[in-house]
């Protein structure tokens, strides 16, 4: 079996806050294979971005991290900052949610791109030529003009393309895309998704896509992990996960999609609110809101276990196929 590019094992992250320790991630476990697009899906505040920042080691200083993150055979969490500098941008890169704030407003696009190029590969003799080449790869026709523009002279979609071109300067093997289309309109979203697909194919890059857009997941991703409140509750191939849902939370999430709504019928929601990370519920974190919970759910934490060959679920009472 081929080794996965990235393997996150039992990742715990907590933050010390004024009100106490906030347990944000609990035993997050998943893998990303070579040339795969893997999506982490979950509602706002469930720990998707924290997971991404743990992988690229840019969490704020008040964080405590436990577990293992194996990337290209090395445990990221044991690397020193000086070694991490050699990983970021070179074999792992990241694009952020809001393209308008990803680029420094004080410097021209070209200058930022060239600085990224010289930072990530000092051997490149003509950074400008490489920069123009990258800009045309992410779909710009008028590369010279974009090169000489300031970020705020470009539209959101163009800014995100530039950000993607910067993330590609070191030809990374893993690209983390943290809600790359959330701030964009639907048409631009489609273009960015198309671009990410193209990047995956031309650079053989694996992509960790963080999103709450299930439509995006369906069009782009090979496998999906569903996160709820700091835990990965279900992982499976996209089709399986959509049509053979095992976890009650995933089911609730899919049911609350607007296109399921029939005429004059209210949109189904998951009852209850998110608990506080300062005092997470014991046992399964979803049990207080779960329609299928029983006694054992409040006592033990369900581990994420395979239900079929590729489909994993962390639940004591998973749904069976026909429900």
């Amino acid at each position: 079996m081929v080794e996965p590019i990235l393997s996150v094992e039992k990742l715990d992250v907590s933050f010390s806050t004024f009100e106490g320790l906030a347990h944000v991630l609990s035993k997050v476990t998943f893998k990303i294979n070579h040339k795969e697009v893997f999506a982490l899906v979950g509602e706002t505040g469930c720990g998707k971005t924290v997971t991404a920042l743990s992988i690229i080691k840019l969490l704020p200083r008040n964080s405590y991290v436990q577990g293992r993150i194996i990337f290209n055979g090395r445990n990221i969490l044991e690397l020193k900052e000086s070694d991490m500098v050699e990983v970021r941008g070179k074999s792992m890169a990241m694009i952020l949610q809001d393209p308008s704030s990803s680029l420094n407003p004080m410097f021209k696009v070209g200058e930022q791109l060239c600085d990224a190029i010289t930072s990530n590969d000092p051997n490149i003799k003509e950074p400008k030529r490489y920069a123009l080449e990258l800009l045309s790869k992410v779909g710009f026709k008028d590369t010279e003009r974009v090169f000489n523009s300031y970020p705020n002279e470009l539209s959101g979609g163009m800014q995100q393309r530039v950000a993607i071109s910067i993330s590609l300067t070191g030809k990374p093997t893993l690209l983390i895309a943290d809600e790359p289309t959330t701030a964009l309109d639907v048409l631009t979203q489609a273009q960015i998704i198309q671009l990410l697909k193209q990047v995956r194919d031309t650079y053989s890059t694996s992509v960790l896509l963080i999103t709450h857009n299930l439509g995006l997941v369906a069009t782009l991703c090979d496998r999906v992990g569903i996160m709820y409140f700091g835990q990965v509750v279900e992982i499976g191939p996209t089709y399986d996960l959509f049509y053979n849902t095992k976890h009650p939370y995933t089911k609730g999430l899919l049911q609350s999609l607007p296109y399921n709504k029939l005429k004059n019928q209210t949109l189904p929601t998951i009852p209850g609110d998110l608990p506080s990370p300062l005092s997470p519920p014991s046992g399964c974190r979803f049990y207080p809101r779960c329609p299928r919970s029983n006694e054992s759910c409040s006592k033990d934490v369900p581990e994420i276990l395979p239900i079929t060959d590729k489909h994993y679920v962390a639940c004591f009472n998973p749904l069976s196929g026909d429900e």
Partner: peptide
């Protein structure tokens, strides 16, 4: 704390560039 600094760090910009230029 701005996003563009996080973005630059995440994409391998040299520390000196980030601090003393950007």
């Amino acid at each position: 704390n701005e996003n563009y600094i996080r973005f630059a760090k995440a994409n391998g910009f040299k520390d000196n560039l980030i601090y003393y230029k950007y």
